[in-house]
C-alpha cells in the first residue's frame, strides 16, 4: 500500500450562489493512477482544479475546507500558488499548446522556474519530456515548428510533455482524451500508465 499523497477534508466549492461540491473527503495515494468517474457536471473537474488551485482564476469560485498535499494545507492564503503548481501539473480537456514552437512549449516551464540554466540542459529537459510523452520520435526533426500545427493527439501529448517538463509530483488530467480519436486515446492511456512508474 502506498502512502497518502493528497487528502481532501470537507471540501465545499461554490460558483457564486451555486454549490458545486458538497463535503468531499477523499484520500489519493502516491505512485498510483486514480481516476474520477461520474456523469457530466458532477464536479470532477471542479475537484481536480482545487488540487492545484486553478479555481483561483475563476472570480466567482469560492473554496472552503481543506486539501493537504504531503500533510501541507494548500488552501492556505499564504501558500505560494506558483510553487504549488510547479509540483502539481495539469493537462486540460482540450489540448492548449502555446502558439510557439514545440521546443518553446516544453522549455517554457523549466525556464520560468529556473531549471536548466544552460542551453544544453534545456535541450536535455525538452528531449526527456518529449520522450516520456512518447512524442520525441514524431517531432524531433521539427522542434522549431509551431506546436499548434500538430494533430490533436500530438498536441495533447505535447501538453503532457509540457506538464512533465518541470518534474511535477502530481499530474492532474481533466478528461485529456475527450477531444481525441480512439488511436490517440490509446496512446495517451498507455502513456499515463508509464508515468506512474517512478523515474530515475
Amino acid at each position: 500500500m502506498n502512502n497518502v499523497k493528497i487528502k481532501s477534508k470537507n471540501l465545499n466549492v461554490y460558483y457564486g450562489e451555486k454549490q458545486a461540491l458538497f463535503n468531499v473527503n477523499l484520500d489519493l495515494n502516491e505512485k498510483e493512477v486514480t481516476a474520477l468517474i461520474g456523469p457530466s457536471g458532477c464536479g470532477k473537474s471542479t475537484f481536480i482544479r482545487c488540487i492545484n488551485r486553478m479555481n483561483d482564476v475563476i472570480d466567482i469560485c469560492k473554496v472552503s475546507g481543506n486539501i493537504e498535499i504531503d500533510g501541507v494545507e494548500i488552501n492556505d492564503k499564504n501558500l505560494d500558488v506558483v510553487s504549488l503548481r510547479e509540483r502539481v501539473g495539469m493537462v486540460f480537456q482540450k489540448p492548449n499548446p502555446f502558439p510557439k514552437s514545440i521546443y518553446d512549449n516544453i522549455s517554457y516551464g523549466p525556464k520560468i522556474h529556473g531549471k536548466g540554466e544552460t542551453k544544453s540542459e534545456l535541450d536535455e529537459i525538452v528531449e526527456n519530456s518529449l520522450k516520456k510523452a512518447a512524442l520525441w520520435e514524431e517531432v524531433k526533426d521539427r522542434l522549431d515548428e509551431p506546436g499548434t500545427g500538430l494533430s490533436g493527439g500530438q498536441q495533447q501529448r505535447l501538453c503532457i510533455a509540457r506538464a512533465i517538463s518541470v518534474n511535477p509530483e502530481v499530474i492532474l488530467m481533466d478528461e485529456p482524451c475527450s477531444a481525441l480519436d480512439p488511436i490517440a486515446t490509446a496512446k495517451i492511456e498507455e502513456l499515463i500508465d508509464e508515468l506512474k512508474k517512478p523515474t530515475l
Binding site: D80, V82, S83, I112, H113, G114
Partner: peptide
C-alpha cells in the same frame, strides 16, 4: 540563486 530567492524575484 536558491529556490526561495528565485521565487521572491519572480513575485517582485
Amino acid at each position: 540563486m536558491t529556490k526561495e530567492q528565485r521565487l521572491k524575484k519572480r513575485h517582485n
